[in-house]
């Protein structure tokens, strides 16, 4: 039976095209400019894009009306999956590691989603937070995984191709760029699909969506698994580029930072999380450099300014304000 919700047709092609064009342009520019960037900038972009991928998942949840305070769970699982492959099995291939990150995060989310899909608002936020703190607690108690000190990992090959020392960093950067592009493009397409468009409908009025014949729980479950997979792969990318994983990745402050970036970015476009993460990381890094004693204050003030002047997040800069 056909569901009756999709009365509205897809948005005009022009809107879709613009985001896709910007995404493609960013992909090409980053891939070409990568080797020319100073090392610190390439690394900073690498981490920012990985975080952007995690926050992209949160954007999807936020579009559904849910704020997760526990994306650190999947971020950490992803990183540990990649790390464990190297640590215990000596596998050092970026592709294999990332697939493991993705698979583990998705599998855990598929199970936890059964429970979490029943909850909304603060209950969803707190429950997701609780799960990530359980993982944190478990990892801290596990001496075999280095407890709070964690352990190191490194990747030497990409899909079986051995990388020299010279190209290792760039290969990882390029992988991150391609992963971030695929994630953004995928989520963009998904959001304009039938199932994707249900997200906003659920946020506006769940009851009506149910009456119209769509399963709210199923949509939330699917979106939750997508968000978790993105967090897992983001965690894998960060773990490989940092070269070290520790339980702090599952700590609530890490999840809090993702919420911070998500609010800073706004949910206006799939491009927003990447912009937000890059700005967050730049502000943080320069705050570390110029005011080592008060860098937290600078981040806080930035957040306050964004909330006061750009309540829709940084992305609202690029969208025309609706006439009030």
């Amino acid at each position: 039976m056909n569901q009756t919700v999709s009365i509205q047709k897809r948005p005009p092609a022009q809107g879709t095209d613009r985001t896709t064009i910007v995404l493609l342009a960013a992909l090409v520019v980053l891939l070409v400019a990568g080797p020319l960037l100073p090392r610190w900038a390439m690394f900073m972009l690498n981490v920012s894009l990985s975080w952007g991928t995690v926050v992209l998942g949160m954007l999807l949840l936020m579009r559904t009306g849910l704020v997760s305070f526990g994306q650190g769970l999947y971020y950490c699982l992803g990183a540990y999956a990649a790390g464990a492959l190297h640590h215990f099995y000596g596998i050092a291939d970026i592709m294999v590691m990332l697939l493991a990150s993705l698979a583990l995060a998705a599998a855990v989310a598929a199970v936890l989603g059964l429970l979490l899909a029943k909850y909304r608002s603060i209950f969803f936020a707190m429950l997701s937070l609780a799960f990530s703190m359980i993982l944190f607690g478990l990892l801290v108690k596990t001496s075999a995984l280095g407890s709070t000190d964690g352990f190191g990992l490194s990747a030497k090959t990409l899909a079986g191709i051995t990388l020299g020392e010279r190209w290792e960093r760039y290969a990882l950067f390029a992988t991150t760029v391609v992963v971030a592009f695929c994630a953004a493009f995928g989520v963009h397409r998904y959001l304009s699909s039938h199932q994707g468009r249900l997200a906003g409908a659920i946020r506006d009025n769940e009851l009506r969506v149910e009456y119209m014949g769509a399963s709210v729980r199923r949509v939330i479950h699917v979106n939750y698994v997508i968000a978790a997979s993105l967090a897992g792969i983001g965690g894998g990318l960060v773990g490989i580029s940092i070269g070290h994983v520790d339980p702090e990745m599952a700590f609530w402050t890490t999840s809090g930072e993702f919420v911070f970036i998500a609010i800073l970015s706004g949910t206006g476009s799939v491009l927003a999380p990447f912009l937000g993460a890059t700005i967050f990381e730049s502000v943080r890094s320069f705050a570390y450099e110029y005011s080592p004693n008060t860098w937290q204050l600078i981040l806080g003030v930035t957040m306050l300014l964004v909330i006061m002047f750009l309540p829709g997040g940084l992305w609202s800069v690029f969208t025309r304000r609706k006439a009030a």
């Binding site: 610190w40 700590f251 943080r284 570390y288 450099e289 080592p292």
Partner: peptide, 19 residues
């Protein structure tokens, strides 16, 4: 440089210090 913030930030900051 402040050491607070965990290993992810410290590795970034180390790279910034160096390059």
């Amino acid at each position: 440089i402040d050491e607070a913030g965990g290993t992810t930030k410290q590795v970034s900051e180390f790279r910034n210090l160096v390059s």
